[in-house]
Design a protein around this nucleic acid. Sequence first.
DNA 1: GTCTATATTGTGATAGAC
DNA 2: GTCTATCACAATATAGAC
Lengths: 202, 202
Amino acid sequence: MVKKTISTEEKILEAAKTVFHRKGYEGARMQEIADEAGINKALLHYYFRTKENLFDAVFRSAFQEIFTKLFSTIGSDVPLEEKLTNLIGTYIGFLQKNSYIPGFILNELSHNPEKIVEIFKTAPVPPSMILKRMRKSLNDEKMKKTDFRDLFINMLALCIFPIVARPMIQHIFEFSDQEYDQFIENRKKELPVFIMNAIRKK
Amino acid sequence: MVKKTISTEEKILEAAKTVFHRKGYEGARMQEIADEAGINKALLHYYFRTKENLFDAVFRSAFQEIFTKLFSTIGSDVPLEEKLTNLIGTYIGFLQKNSYIPGFILNELSHNPEKIVEIFKTAPVPPSMILKRMRKSLNDEKMKKTDFRDLFINMLALCIFPIVARPMIQHIFEFSDQEYDQFIENRKKELPVFIMNAIRKK
DNA sequence: GTCTATATTGTGATAGAC
DNA sequence: GTCTATCACAATATAGAC
């Protein structure tokens, strides 16, 4: 028999996720989270005692969600171009459906840089393992002597920035909402080519 | 005779800039701004009436500062590779000295997307003019049929992201502060090459 | 213009009944 | 576990003297 009931704790976490992503830590209000969850403030404190505890749970979950996705794709054992295509496609797809997450993380990152160190320590996939595999892919193929750290960062930048800076870019180029969605969709195909051209040996 | 006195209004704007960049809109406190300016809260309200008015002035200034720099370099009339090198060098240099600005803008952008439309309307350099010149550069040279909008966005992304996500990246790759500065410094030389490789006709 | 003092409203957090 | 009522305090904003 399928469990249909959602526990109060889960409802709170869902609501908190929504509100924190929408407003950030300082901007979020316990009242708004309570309303979103259909309960009252007192119950929030009963479950999580403080706003910071609640925030910690949400931030940790957002961070791990995005990095688990990212790292599992990057760690797969396929040729570089195929890996890039998979990686960029699934990653941008994820960002499209969760467009608040990268902005949220970047935001809290700049106000609480110490916090991410702690979160990385409890990451389900240790970054060092990912990096090792990525370096291997580069060496196996006939690539320019590209620093794999640069490659990794460039890829992240090219995927995330158009999502985070969407309102700005959309206005500069006078895109409609629909046109911008299409623009992002095209990038899924064009980014892997762009990157491969940049690093392929002539 | 050089004017040495700094008006109270200028002191307030300087202080507000510092505090808003450090804490964001919600996180900033009028008291902290007053302390930073060496005056008291009442005087803030005397000059700017509300916190939002003060914020508007600061945000507008940060936004125009970064875009004026960006647009004036991108609009120069030199060959593409040279333009890219100039652009990336001066732009990253600017970001290094004002590392809080892009994070600040991205942050408030995600909480007040409407606001940027208004700010763009009062921009000193109209975006449309920049785009025209950029398109011209691409056509003049033997380049792949690259969408100039993609090129523009990719360049922004590659410059800004390593600055904004610094604490995260620094931890992943276990860079010391000094090593990260050097890493950014290297990107000034490598990014133009990376981009030119990506878009040059074979 | 600049200050001290105070009003007013928000918000995170708790007490205590059920 | 869940609620209502309330506390304690922090933050924006204003009044009014100088």
